[in-house]
Design a protein around this nucleic acid. Structure first.
Length: 861
RNA sequence: GGGGACAUGGCGGAAUCGGUAGACGCAGCGGCCUUAAAAGCCGCAGGCCGCGAGGCCGUCCGGGUUCGAGUCCCGGUGUCCCUACCA
């Protein structure tokens, strides 16, 4: 039998061993082997949607990172909760079902099997006993149950709203799923259409969702995104009476009530209900035409077309409530314009072209007057539009006040006059929560004949998805479930006939609380036991990509807070610490015209990349991995060619986990070579023994000679490994291993068993297969390195006794000299002086800076 | 238009508190081993000048603070990500 490093001979075997022995199973409260004395650590990956394409090398980047963290924490004595599951409801499986007739449950199950196999093949140490998919009744029963809690708290309502409708997908989409009028998934055109929809009152939690961000250990950028998404803005609601139309008034929201004297016109959103009531006869045709045009425009892209402001006068006028109705200045025209959005604030604005750029543009377009009511603090003259803060001018009731005070004063006056109040507005809208689709959680809702609805009793959950064979939505947009026959009909105990709701929940629903289910995934009595919730509390470290910075993380926080208010979870927030891994990119090749050339047309064997057909030189650039560039890398292939440990090491060696960085196929063999060299330190490839005989000898006493050299290299290496867990820059840990290996190889004759054991323990989180293999060959119980203790640092052997002292003259490096680590400042200065004596000759030394352990700098003229 | 991140050799990237820039790896070059090649092992390796000792330049560009700046401050350029009439 060969003793060469051949990972295919043992990697699969160890993976099998871990599964069979449930090595990474984590006992929790209620399990007989649970040890409550240990501290807990819950480290979670954002679980994947199991697509048909399987994993590509980008997915495992974060998974390998958390696997390393989980494995080390386990070795440090923590109860580590590190599970994996599948966000398995969603559109792609259903689209596929419509095209092929395959039931989404079938394709989803097949995809999950692929994902599971791939993740196990990477050696990820998840607790597979806790695995689940959100599309199983065992799970969505509790999704429905939590929905019922929201329902009972009045956070669920049904309303007719203009929603994004995607003709291609035959469903409504949430605002955030539509980008520039096209669906985020599939890039199909979408139109606005009024439909009755389920809404969740997330806006009721807006303030808490902003305020509680402060206590989270999250990237500032993500917190900022969430704050801006919620978009809290403080201002006033002001009511302007409409001239000559008795009883009508225009209510606007403004953040600048201090500019009220500068209002010269008003604009209503095209959809504003007031438009019909106030438009004058001679403007009616023009307004009607404009509204129709605006409705079409919104289907395309209102924002893109809005380079120039458009609008039309209604012919009606409003009266500035601060001025006397007789004052001609008080009379301001009311327009309709599509730069005002019906969905924000009141759908109407007061326009102050002197101090708002959009209003200014509109005023320019339509020749409306501009009135200046704020002057810059420094007294400088402003022409056109000034949006900054300063002092109020031409504003009789608060002239001369700085903007902040003017705001407060104007608010007070508005309230006094009874024509305005302070108000807070949010950009965040209530969450459109229903989809006219099949593959999602059915709503646990029953409709009565009188038009009322009630929720399904808890004991009747889950409301299971009915078996169907045709999932296509109807032409009129009626959901597939409306054709579900018997399933639809329910008779309640009183004999009343009820009909089930036929919408399903959006893809986000299942991921709103899955982290809680991991705490107690097989519980049939509750979504998780109070004991489990109380022990695991919340996620200590949550790792995933930035693409979920707003939606998923905001929705999950919302549900968690509702559960907190219900007294069902012990924490206010679900994810204590968030970490965003970088994106995995790939090299791409650009020709002279700037076009990207698919990778398989590029010849890389020469000194520079060449286009195979034309022979043209190409430029290497960094781009996303994409099918069209044919630079997508499959982890299965990499593992097959280089081994799993090499794959894991390379992914971590590429750079810090947080950075985006390109996959370079040429670098992968370097990781493999490291493992081979390490192997040879332990195993004589030419011999027939599983491990070098010296390593079977129990070492005693302090290391000496070559063993001492290895020891002195090891401890700084371990220090760097430990430090790499601070910022998740495991590339530096692996570099440290490599440097240590270079030293150890040089002094291999002195390599001792105790050193071998410590190295393998520290290596185990990074390259677990080879660590297990060599650990077992050392005679330890198979599989036990995963449970070994994390090695301790020995401060006595932190490198050698001397260091290289840099000697500078006037800040420039002029020499180097070996110096003892414990030398005094005076000794260092003397050594340095001797080293650069010739450079100092004839110069006057003005100052000497001594930095122990580093350098000496002579300031000399 | 707004917000954020980043910028270091041919490539990926190192560099605690401001203290020897380029660790580690890839690609490259030289040597050993070999009939030869591969693999492996040993060594070289930012640029320029010089036979050499050595010197000069160098972390996107321009200024500044400092004994000393990749790191801090001001201004600019470029790349990537997010966002987009939010009143």
């Amino acid at each position: 039998m060969t003793q060469r490093y051949e990972p295919s001979l043992f990697e699969a075997r160890w993976q099998q061993h871990w599964l069979e022995n449930r090595t990474f199973r984590t006992p929790g409260p209620g399990d007989p082997d649970f040890d409550p004395a240990r501290p807990k650590y819950f480290v979670l990956d954002m679980f994947p949607y199991p697509s048909g394409a399987g994993l590509h090398v980008g997915h495992p980047m974060g998974y390998i990172g958390t696997d390393i963290i989980a494995r080390r924490k386990r070795m440090e004595g923590f109860n580590v909760l590190h599970p994996m599951g599948y966000d398995a409801f969603g559109l792609p499986a259903e689209q596929y079902a419509i095209q092929t007739g395959q039931h989404p449950a079938v394709t989803t199950e097949a995809n999950i099997a692929t994902f599971r196999r791939q993740m196990q093949a990477i050696g990820l140490g998840y607790d597979w006993d806790r695995e689940f998919a959100t599309c199983t009744p065992d799970y969505y029963r509790w999704t429905q149950w939590i929905f019922a809690r929201l329902y009972d708290r009045g956070l669920v309502y049904q309303t007719e709203v203009p929603v994004w409708w995607c003709e291609e997908l035959k469903t409504v989409l949430a605002n955030e799923e539509v980008i520039n009028g096209r669906s985020e998934r599939g890039d199909h055109p979408c139109v606005r259409r009024p439909l009755k929809q389920w809404m969740l009152r997330i806006t009721a939690y807006a303030d808490r969702l902003i305020d509680d961000l402060d206590e989270l250990e999250w990237p500032e950028s993500v917190k900022t995104m969430q704050r801006e998404w919620i978009g809290r803005s403080e201002g006033a609601e002001v009511r302007f009476p409409v001239a000559e139309v008795e009883g009508e008034e225009v209510t606007v929201f403004t953040t600048r009530p201090d500019t009220l004297y500068g209002v010269t016109f008003m604009v209503l959103a095209p959809e504003h209900p007031l438009v019909d009531r106030i438009t004058t006869a001679d403007q009616r045709a023009a307004v009607q035409a404009y509204r129709e045009q605006a409705a079409v425009k919104s289907e395309l892209d209102r924002t893109d077309l809005a380079k120039d402001k458009t609008g039309v006068a209604t012919g009606a006028y409003a009266l500035n409530p601060l001025l006397s109705p007789e004052d001609p200045e008080a009379r301001i025209p009311i327009h309709v314009g599509d730069y005002v959005l019906m969905g924000y604030g009141t759908g109407a604005i007061m326009c102050v072209p002197g101090h708002d750029e959009r209003d200014f543009e509109y005023a320019q377009e339509f020749g409306l007057p501009v009135r200046t009511v704020v002057a810059p603090e420094d007294g400088s003259a402003v022409e056109g539009c000034f949006t900054g803060t300063g002092r109020a001018v031409a504003s009789p009731r608060w002239d001369g006040l700085p903007t902040a005070e003017a705001k407060a004063r104007s608010l007070g006056i508005l309230e006094e006059l009874g024509c305005g109040t302070a108000r807070v507005t949010y950009r965040l809208r209530d969450w459109l929560f229903s989809r006219q689709r099949y593959w999602g959680e059915p709503f646990p809702i029953l409709h009565a004949e009188d038009g009322t609805h009630r929720r399904v009793a808890d004991e009747d959950l889950p409301v299971e998805l009915p078996e169907m064979t045709d999932f296509a939505p109807a032409e009129d947009g009626a959901p597939p479930l409306s054709r579900a026959g018997d399933w639809l009909e329910v008779t309640d105990p009183s004999g009343a006939r009820l009909v089930r709701d036929t919408d399903t929940m959006p893809g986000w629903a299942g991921s709103c609380w899955y982290y809680l289910r991991f705490m107690d995934p097989r519980n049939g009595q509750a979504f998780a036991s109070p004991e489990a919730l109380d022990y695991w509390r919340s996620v200590d470290l949550y790792v995933g990509g930035t693409e979920h910075a707003v939606l998923h993380l905001l929705y999950a926080r919302f549900w968690h807070k509702v559960l907190f208010d219900e007294g069902l979870v012990p924490t206010k927030e679900p994810f204590a610490k968030l970490f965003n891994q970088g994106m995995l990119q790939a090299f791409a090749y650009k020709d002279a015209t700037g076009r990207l050339v698919p990778s398989d047309e590029v010849e890389l064997s020469g000194p520079e990349p060449i286009h195979r057909e034309s022979g043209a030189r190409l430029e290497q650039v960094v781009a996303k991995m994409s099918k069209s560039l044919r630079n997508v890398v499959n982890p299965d292939e990499v593992c097959a060619e280089f081994g799993v440990d090499a794959f894991r090491l390379y992914e971590m060696f590429m750079g810090p986990l947080a950075d985006s960085k390109p996959w370079n196929p040429r670098d992968v063999p370097g990781a493999r070579r490291f493992l081979e060299r390490l192997w040879r330190l332990f195993v004589d490839e030419e011999g027939d023994q599983p491990i070098r005989a010296e390593l079977l000898v129990e070492a005693s006493g302090e290391p000496e000679g070559e063993a001492l050299e290895i020891e002195r290299a090891w401890n700084p290496c371990l220090q760097r490994i430990n430090d790499s867990f601070g910022a998740f820059n495991f590339n530096t840990a692996i570099a440290a291993f490599m440097e240590w290996l270079n030293v150890a190889t040089k002094h291999r004759a002195g390599f001792r068993r105790d050193q071998a054991e410590r190295v393998l323990a520290a290596l185990a989180p990074f390259a677990p297969h080879v660590a297990e293999e060599l650990w077992a060959r050392l005679g330890h119980e198979p599989g036990s390195v995963s449970r070994a203790a994390w090695p301790a640092l020995d401060e006595r052997y932190m490198g050698s006794d001397t260091f290289e002292l840099a000697v500078q003259v006037m800040g420039k490096l002029r020499g180097r000299v070996e110096a003892p680590k414990d030398a005094s400042k005076d000794q260092l200065e003397a050594l340095a002086r001797a080293a650069v004596a010739d450079k100092l000759e004839g110069k006057e030394i003005k100052k000497v800076i001594v930095v122990p352990g580093r350098l000496v700098n002579f300031v000399a003229m």
